[in-house]
């Protein structure tokens, strides 16, 4: 017998995540892989893994996409719901953690804080123009110091006296880290110092003027970093809950929305076969007017399936080619 399911896909800057849930919201399967700058490839390989795990025993009832690549994923897979990542993260936390009032989320390029009151999003904030203090910066620092990102957080936990690192700006933080390292501080103290700096920056920047009430949930890829978790606990003076599926909460939320919006209508999911096709994305610089839009064209097996990025709609309206 086939299992009815809903699939949520979160195509983020650093990771591409998939959550497969049943109609009660139970997690059936999840995938977390690195996007590595190639969202289409990551998406196809993640979907391929799901298909392999379940060898055709899934009956997909609905698909939701989220994350900065949500539009791309929607075109390739045929999504029923395309949602922003704040809403999906909020829905996921609300569903999985009782009484959640504050959601801290740090992803690859974005960090956000979401305040929930009475089960509703009451307020939120996202980082502004700068990505200092997000996952991609931690990745870069781990690589620079020669550690795997998985060991980076544990390294911080070994520190007994974290050094002070300038956290306002990634460029300043990096040069400060190098100065401290040349002065002879140990790697674990520097990494722990970096964790505190990022937490300080997050709280000063995003949480400024916001009341952080318990229950506090920390999700997103960076929640795997024990050093950051410890720094949050210590700085906030509260307990912090890391949900079991912290790394795929956006995808889970997208699946939940797809499930809650199922109507009599059939899903627009193209099927697992869709990810086996060849996809190419190319940028076209439209020079027909002074806007010079960067139009993206997605083709599958040589046939254009979508275009976007134009202001006037001339290219995006051509999708039914």
């Amino acid at each position: 017998m086939k299992t009815d399911c809903y699939i949520g896909i979160d195509v983020g800057s650093v990771s591409t995540n998939i959550a497969v849930i049943d109609n009660k919201g139970n997690m059936l399967d999840k995938i977390y892989i690195r996007t590595e700058g190639q969202p289409i490839k990551a998406l196809c390989s993640a979907m391929g893994k799901i298909e392999k795990n379940w060898s055709k025993s899934l009956y997909v009832q609905g698909v939701g996409t989220t994350g900065s690549g949500r539009q791309l994923a929607s075109v390739i897979l045929g999504a029923d719901v395309v949602k922003n990542e704040i809403t999906t993260h909020a829905i996921a936390a609300q569903k999985l953690v009782d009484g959640v009032q504050t959601i801290l989320e740090i992803g690859g390029q974005d960090s956000k804080i979401i305040l929930m009151r009475n089960g509703l999003v009451y307020d939120f904030a996202m980082n502004t123009v700068c990505a200092a203090g997000t996952g991609s910066f931690l990745d870069r620092q781990a690589a620079r110091m020669g550690f795997s990102i998985n060991d980076f957080g544990n390294l911080a936990l070994k520190s007994s006296s974290p050094v002070r690192i300038a956290g306002r700006c990634a460029v300043f933080a990096e040069s400060d880290m190098i100065h401290k390292q040349q002065a002879g501080h140990s790697a674990e103290d520097i990494v722990a110092g970096l964790c505190y700096a990022l937490v300080r920056n997050y709280l000063n920047n995003l949480a400024k003027g916001k009341e952080i009430r318990e229950t506090v949930v920390f999700q997103g890829g960076v929640a795997a970093n024990g050093g950051i978790v410890k720094a949050f606990k210590k700085t906030l003076g509260t307990d912090i809950i890391i949900p079991e599926h912290y790394d795929v909460m956006g995808a889970y939320g997208a699946a939940v929305i797809a499930c809650s919006q199922r109507k009599m209508k059939k899903t627009s999911f193209h099927g697992f076969g869709a990810v086996k096709k060849e996809y190419t994305a190319k940028g076209i610089k439209c020079e027909d007017c002074s806007n010079m839009c960067e139009v993206i064209e997605i083709a599958s097996d040589g046939k254009v399936i979508a275009r976007w990025g134009d202001r006037c709609g001339k290219w995006s309206d051509m999708r039914a080619v």
Partner: peptide
């Protein structure tokens, strides 16, 4: 910009739905 505007309008409609006792969001 799209993400922020969408999340913001979602938040407003979610609150309004709650005031009117609808199920949210979407």
């Amino acid at each position: 910009v799209d993400t922020r505007i969408e999340a913001f309008t979602d938040m407003i409609s979610w609150r309004r739905a709650d005031e009117n006792n609808f199920s949210a969001p979407g």
